[in-house]
Design a protein around this nucleic acid. Structure first.
Lengths: 327, 327
DNA sequence: TTGTATGCGTTATCAT
DNA sequence: ATGATAACGCATACAA
């Protein structure tokens, strides 16, 4: 009995088939010897691997771990394993991770997390992704569609615009915004969508009601502190993500300002783990697990000539953190 | 110029060195051709890969995403990439994932998440891990030391015992416990450590004050609902993890019971994302990121004859959710 | 210091 | 249906 037959018996073959008794003998021996096919050797012989890369800013952030959950789910359906890379919030490390995944000959790479407004960085990333694709891999990005590849576009602008209208509908007129970093495009889109909707409502926010701050819990805390201490008087504050909103609530509490009585707070994302915070957070729900699934399916789909865009809409969820002013 | 020289120029060699001008020519050509070494081929030629496996119950759970954060950190220091597998809370899938990682010839695998009291399952897992080690990989488990491999042991018993004493010190006398699933060893250790300490204090909890429930947010919600509706009157409730505690607080609220005024609530883990919940949660802090790092270092350390154990202690953090009774 | 040749474990092609 | 063998891309032992 030959090597070839054993291979066909164990891992199958598109064209060939093995007689039952022989196959049984092979499988019995494999079992007895605790044989385990070498995936690396298979990758080399077959010319393709079974792995999928995922690049996130911070796997400990619930935003990314939810996406990762969706990606692992979809990857498993496709019989792929997920290779995880976490940049620890340093976007300049992304291209190196793409190159790393190229060396692994990953079938596809999914880049999660918003882009920065940094042309040099984005150019580097575009180049890295092009190399990756030239090596036969496919790519999907979650965030802004500016890397010339398939992208799951999150409707940040329209989501925060809808949120602005909903808050206006509850009677709020004086708005503050914890705006995140200036060059952070997700933060910018959310901030601008919010601001534009307010302007359309004839109720623009004061320029000094926009506070630049980190995109994290501590950023929200620090920004809220500044806003409440030095900023204009506001009835409600929009933090551009939920984690920041939680930090903002903590800051208000530390300054002895009641949420929502003295000031309302709204966030963005509807992070599952934060659904039970008090007061319950008004936010824009993004189906993050589905986003991860969609990105994976996009990356694994038959390659297209043009970069494809999948749009994901958010839905406003009004909760107790924004009951309306004077309540 | 030969293939061998190019290989040595690009990826270095322990024994040989390449003349500068030749090396420069090689590197220039590699850069020009956007050459990228094939990690699979390297793995085969070198006989070892650069990948590390991580198995978790649910990557979307902040407990596991914190551990994952530590693992990716430590793995990167060792120039390894992390392959992530999420069982979606089905422990019976763990052995298959170990086998998958064996096929990849991962250098090591880290199994995060407590064991079950299920002899058949544990035997299967032990066998899978033995096969993995026989194939040259190393293993580290986070949780209970019953798989005969290196283990990061989390001091669940002593942690919850210390918590019990601290709560007793605040004046609580009537305790309830949201105990998690019966066969879940982490839940069991926490529950029993708590119960034993109470008994030693001469203040044992009533048997019907222990509520079996899921190890999740919804489990905590549901268990708390049952406890408040049908259980004995209690002053404070210990949920065996933070996520469950948050669910418990939500349940109390829905039953119009004030936390901490009507009933105190304590958790376990000190999940970062939940540090801002209201009221602030009394808990036992486990340094989860460090646990991930420790497990990775353990797995990557020089193999030992005997399974090694690294013990991680928790520290009680008293916060507003347990101010003491009658307040 | 450089080049040649062999092997790593598997699949696929081509005979038989 | 099965067997022999070349190829995958790289690292290394050995020869020069």
């Amino acid at each position: 009995m030959s090597l070839a037959t054993a291979s066909r018996a164990i891992n199958g073959s598109a064209t060939r088939t093995v007689r039952a008794d022989l196959r049984d003998r092979v499988l019995e021996a494999a079992e007895r010897l605790r044989y385990s096919p070498d995936a690396n050797a298979q990758a080399m012989a077959r010319g393709r691997t079974t792995s999928l890369g995922l690049i996130v800013h911070d796997i400990a952030d619930p935003y990314f771990s939810s996406i990762a959950s969706g990606v692992t789910l979809a990857a498993e359906r496709a019989s792929l394993v997920v290779t995880l890379a976490s940049t620890q919030h340093d976007p300049s490390r992304e291209p190196a991770f793409v190159e790393l995944l190229r060396r692994q000959r990953a079938r596809a790479v999914i880049v999660a997390g918003g882009r920065r407004d940094d042309d040099a960085l984005n150019a580097e990333m575009r180049a890295a992704l092009e190399d990756f694709e030239r090596s036969g891999g496919s790519v999907a990005v979650i965030g802004q569609p500016l890397l010339d590849v398939d992208t799951v576009v999150i409707a940040n602008r329209s989501g925060s615009a809808a949120l602005a209208r909903a808050l206006h509908g509850r009677g709020y007129r004086r708005f503050g915004v914890l705006a995140g970093p200036v060059d952070h495009l997700t933060a910018r889109d959310r901030r601008e969508g919010f601001a534009e909707a307010l302007a359309e409502l004839g109720c623009p926010a004061a320029p000094d009601a926009f506070v630049t701050c980190g995109f994290t819990r501590d950023g929200g805390y620090e920004g809220m502190t500044r806003l409440l201490k030095d900023g204009p008087d506001v009835e409600v504050v929009f933090a551009v993500n939920d984690v920041m909103a939680v930090g903002a609530i903590a800051a208000a509490r530390d300054l002895a300002r009641s949420v929502p009585h003295d000031v309302g707070v709204a966030g963005f994302d509807d992070i599952t783990t934060l659904r039970d915070v008090t007061p319950a957070l008004t936010t824009v729900r993004i189906p993050l697990v589905d986003v991860g699934i969609a990105a994976t399916e996009l990356a694994l789909a038959r390659p297209a000539d043009e970069p494809r865009l999948v749009h994901v809409e958010g839905s406003v969820v009004l909760r107790e953190s924004t009951p309306g002013p004077h309540t």
